[in-house]
């Protein structure tokens, strides 16, 4: 049932484009095999990512204006509450500074090297990519990013940069099924293990799981996990989360899995901190 006579299809340009797609795909596989990003992908990102950054900024400004217009009166109360919170945080900060100075003085007396705070930079999340086990975000910082940069929030570890292009990069989150981090329990003689995503337990909230190296591991509810530094991917000492429950396999009692509630809020990642590996 045709309204007009359709012109004959020209298949040559279609076949040429399919050939081009094959070349792009081959190029991507070759580049990824050596841990690089292919030229067409870099070109596409160079066009799309700045526009995404602009849209995220524009969206945030619009939301702020809309919120101010809609809830003008309640914003005054919220502002007062925030001012109270700032005063509390300022008091906390002063307490931390005194602890830091005390720590520095003790390190000096013990002859240890002075403790330098890691020079982390803030980055804005401009893209969220999820589905089929993938949990990745694209970030934009005000300095050049490098592959392997560690990404965290003030609360805990978030993931690492797996692809970088100038000041923007793709971060593989800890909740990605391909991600894993060597961890240890923050206790004297705390057990070591690997922390990875737990999609089977993440129906209502984001969860991770720890599989201990030892089948006689002593894992307890409430135990805090930090990165152990094993493997060299993540530096040691970054908080990951706390153990919410420990399960033993019904088939094999030596198989222990601890489900971990991450400290970082993976559902609301707007800003993150980026550290160079080893910093």
């Amino acid at each position: 049932m045709r309204a007009t006579h359709a012109p004959a299809v020209r298949w040559e340009p279609i076949l040429a484009m399919m050939l081009l797609a094959l070349i792009f795909t081959w190029g991507q596989h070759r580049a990824r095999a050596v841990g690089e990003t292919s030229l067409p992908e870099r070109g596409a990102r160079a066009v799309v990512w700045p526009l995404q950054s602009l849209l995220v900024r524009g969206g945030a400004s619009t939301r702020t204006v809309a919120t101010a217009a809609y809830r003008g009166r309640s914003l005054v109360a919220e502002n007062q509450e925030l001012e109270r919170r700032v005063r509390e945080l300022e008091a906390d900060r002063l307490r931390m500074v005194s602890y830091y100075l005390e720590n520095s003085a003790m390190r000096k007396k013990l002859g240890w090297a002075p403790l330098e705070p890691p020079p982390a930079v803030a980055a804005r999340v401009i893209d969220w990519s999820s589905g089929q086990g993938r949990k990745r975000v694209t970030i934009e910082a005000n300095r050049e990013l490098e592959r392997g940069n560690i990404v965290r929030t003030q609360a805990g570890l978030v993931g690492r940069v797996i692809e970088a292009q100038g000041t923007r990069g793709t971060v593989m989150l800890l909740t990605d099924t391909e991600s894993a981090v060597a961890a240890r329990v923050l206790r004297e003689n705390g057990d070591f293990g690997m922390v990875s995503a737990a999609p089977e337990a993440s129906e209502h909230m984001t969860m991770l799981k720890m599989i201990p190296h030892s089948n006689r591991a002593d894992l307890r509810m409430g135990d805090v996990l930090i990165s152990s530094g094993d493997g060299g991917v993540y530096p040691q000492g970054i908080p990951i989360g706390f153990i919410e429950r420990v399960e033993t396999s019904a088939v094999n009692v030596s198989l222990i899995t601890a489900y971990v509630h991450p400290f970082a809020d993976f559902e609301h990642l707007d800003y993150v901190l980026v550290e160079r590996r080893g910093e």
Binding site: F24, T25, P40, R42, A44, V48, D127, S129, R134, R136
Partner: peptide, 11 residues
Amino acid sequence: LLLGSAESAWL
């Protein structure tokens, strides 16, 4: 190309 590159997917 644009969508696959933006989300780091296999093309």
